[in-house]
Amino acid sequence: MNQSLHQSVLLQAATEALAINPSGRYLDATFGRGGHANEILKKLNAQGRLDVIDRDPEALLVAGNLADSDSRVTVFAGDFESVITEQLSPDTYDGVLFDFGVSSPQIDQAERGFSFQKDGPLDMRMDNHSGDSAADWLAVAGLDEMRQIFWRYGEEKNARRIAQKIIDARDDQPLTRTSELADLVSEVNKAYSKKHPATRVFQAIRIHINDELGQIERSLPESLALLKAGGRLVVISFHSLEDRLVKRFMKKQAKPIKVDRRMPIMPDNLPQATIKIIGKPVKAYEVDANIRARSAVMRVAKRL
């Protein structure tokens, strides 16, 4: 396995944003191939600790090797929502890092089914050992369901036409290969120029299959509870749908509850802001070296 295939986005910026205490405890909730994790470990002393989470079997092999060589590392297998809500304790961490999206090795390995540019099984699961694959879903999804998914998660303007074309095609033969789906979508989206015609549909299916946005929305409040007072939450998003969720969450948590000051008796212990937003959103600067970083945005907050 070639780890050099994956370039962690905003590596130095994210590590600096965590404001690492050398003897603190940190959580890398999206381990990937360990780029951020290794950078965090460089700044920890012998008393520091790093917990990492991933559900991808190959990422877990890399994480396991890291834990075997460094006793400061503990690995949790599973999606970050389940691990955070079921296995981790509140007020534990000095920093929590999320790096959303798909890693380069996942895209580059045709057998994982994430790429519209390489022929492989139509899979797209982050954990390819469980759950329904993209092919499973496309075999049974109705017209309206596909249309809604393609539009909601891919903002695909030809969502209905593509959904109908998939239904027509599967009546003759099930879609099982990435090239089959990419060619089918390309027949509808002939006018696209900068992006591959199938980009939006592949993104939408991947997000749906892995419940990516749902996991983000449910996990952000839970991850905030994991932080100690003063702990940092660092989140890297790769498309507007992810970043919108993060932005709204942080904005809401940074504001105290508003009340009508004209009330005759003010209630005690009014909920206050739970976080302070640190700095402005940071965009990826390594775009020339890593084209997949072009849309990355990092947001940082500190728990109050």
Rank of each mutant, 00 (worst) to 15 (best):
G231A: 06
D99G: 10
V188L: 07
A289T: 09
R55H: 09
M266W: 06
R232P: 04
K228C: 05
L61I: 14
Q253G: 02
P22N: 02
L27E: 01
L10M: 15
Q3C: 12
S130L: 01
L11Q: 08
I40N: 05
Q12R: 13
L50H: 01
I216M: 14
T274H: 06
S186Y: 09
V83K: 01
E86Y: 03
G120E: 05
T274V: 11
R206G: 02
D168F: 12
P256C: 04
L60Q: 07
L220C: 06
N189H: 02
F116W: 13
F80H: 05
S23K: 09
R206Q: 03
I275T: 09
S237V: 10
L213S: 00
A19L: 12
V297E: 05
V188T: 14
E111W: 02
R147E: 15
V234S: 11
Q215N: 15
Q87C: 07
R33C: 14
V9A: 06
D28F: 04
I53A: 05
W151Q: 13
I265K: 13
G48A: 10
V96T: 10
A204G: 11
V234R: 10
Q117T: 12
K280N: 14
Q164F: 11
Y93T: 10
D268T: 14
G78I: 02
N210H: 00
I107L: 15
G120I: 01
E145G: 01
P105R: 13
V9L: 08
L11M: 07
R170N: 12
A134V: 02
R161V: 09
P174L: 10
L44W: 06
H208N: 10
F116Q: 10
R125T: 00
D70N: 14
L97E: 07
R152V: 13
S71D: 12
T30Q: 12
A229F: 11
L41F: 06
E242W: 10
R25C: 14
S69C: 07
E39Y: 02
L97N: 05
L41I: 07
K228F: 05
V234F: 09
D183K: 14
I53S: 06
L66A: 09
A77V: 00
G131W: 00
H36R: 06
S186A: 15
S8N: 08
I162M: 11
I167Q: 15
A67K: 11
D211W: 00
K165V: 07
A254H: 04
M266L: 15
Q173L: 12
V297Y: 02
R248G: 07
F249N: 04
L66N: 03
R55D: 02
A63V: 09
P22H: 04
I53Q: 05
L224H: 05
